[in-house]
């Protein structure tokens, strides 16, 4: 079976782990994140009649003390940047993180999950901000780990791009 390594990166507290948990049933506890800095889950999806196993590396969020650990990114076939729509700084840092990642990995299929869409009252991003993501060459998906909005579609898109092997939507 085809396997693809997908990494989730983003600022601390943007909901990466919640997105993964929305998507898969985890066997490892979230404790791994704080001890080892990564937690790995798995999701088998069907893509055009072919089974693909996604191994989702949920990386510890970036904060003042920890930068993104590029060791864990090695060999990744796809990347998800997670932004918390209610915290503008998480959006701003995405581009810094992207520079770090690209330096380590080169161009790979990447999506930006603009998360927590269920919290509309606290929304801090303008439509222009969200659109700007695409001008940076990243695929944009609005997601909510709470309602499940966009989650399935995002992983599906990324799996397709990773299997396609192209650098689509860079």
């Amino acid at each position: 079976m085809l396997q693809k390594k997908i990494c989730m990166v983003g600022v601390y507290g943007t909901g990466k782990t919640c997105l993964v948990q929305r998507y898969v049933h985890s066997i490892f506890s979230a404790r791994y994140l704080s001890t080892v800095g990564v937690k790995i889950d798995r999701k088998e999806i069907a893509l055009d009649g072919q089974s693909v196993m996604l191994l989702l590396w949920d990386l510890e969020g970036r904060d003042d003390h920890h930068d993104v650990n590029t060791s864990y990114l090695r060999g990744a076939h796809g990347l998800i940047y997670v932004v918390d729509g209610t915290r503008r700084e998480t959006y701003d840092q995405i581009f810094e993180i992207r520079d770090i990642v690209t330096a380590a990995l080169g161009p790979i299929p990447s999506a930006v999950a603009i998360n927590k869409t269920d919290l509309t009252a606290e929304w801090k991003l303008t439509p222009a901000d969200e659109a700007a993501v695409e001008t940076h060459g990243l695929h944009r998906v609005r997601t909510s780990a709470k309602t499940g909005e966009g989650v399935e579609a995002m992983f599906q898109w990324l799996a397709r791009s990773a299997v396609g092997g192209n650098g689509a939507a860079q």
Binding site: Q3, F28, V38, R42, L55, Y72
Partner: peptide, 13 residues
């Protein structure tokens, strides 16, 4: 497959 991933992650760690 998960153990494989974690083994690698632990190696990296």
């Amino acid at each position: 497959d998960l153990i494989s991933g974690m083994l690698t992650a632990i190696q990296d760690f």
